[in-house]
């Protein structure tokens, strides 16, 4: 199974094994990772699973929907060009090794 890495604001990192067909958000919450809230449970409504994607991976991610684009304007920390919602990143074998940085807060 592909594994992905979350880097916390303090620089510590967690490497998380993903399950079959899981999103980055689901993998994070299943492992009890602090820093991903996911209030809406993965329905792309809340913007509380915000991540900053490591620049080298950005182009390899699935395209952003209009809904996700609009929601990113409501994130608790500043939206940056590499901002994404982790519930919208489904982990495929091609994303093995993906690096995501966590914002300081989600609400």
């Amino acid at each position: 199974m592909p594994a992905i890495t979350f880097i916390h604001p303090d620089g510590k990192s967690d490497r998380v094994e993903t399950g079959d067909g899981e999103s980055a958000m689901q993998a994070a919450t299943r492992h009890g990772l602090d820093g991903i809230l996911a209030e809406c449970g993965g329905n792309a409504m809340c913007a509380t699973c915000h991540v900053y994607v490591d620049e080298s991976w950005l182009a390899r991610l699935p395209d952003m929907s209009d809904d996700e684009d609009a929601l990113l304007d409501g994130t608790a920390t500043e939206r940056l060009p590499n901002s994404r919602l982790s519930c919208q990143i489904n982990i495929t074998p091609a994303l093995d090794g993906l690096v995501l940085r966590l914002p300081a807060r989600q609400v």
Binding site: T29, G32, L37, A38, E39, C40, G41, G42, N43, M45, C46
Partner: peptide, 23 residues
């Protein structure tokens, strides 16, 4: 508790549209 994923607001396309007002 990590309560995320409960269905008190529903889930999917009809999930409570006012959930952020409530929270």
């Amino acid at each position: 508790r990590r309560a995320s994923g409960h269905v008190g607001f529903g889930s999917g396309i009809h999930m409570c549209v006012g959930q952020f007002v409530a929270r």
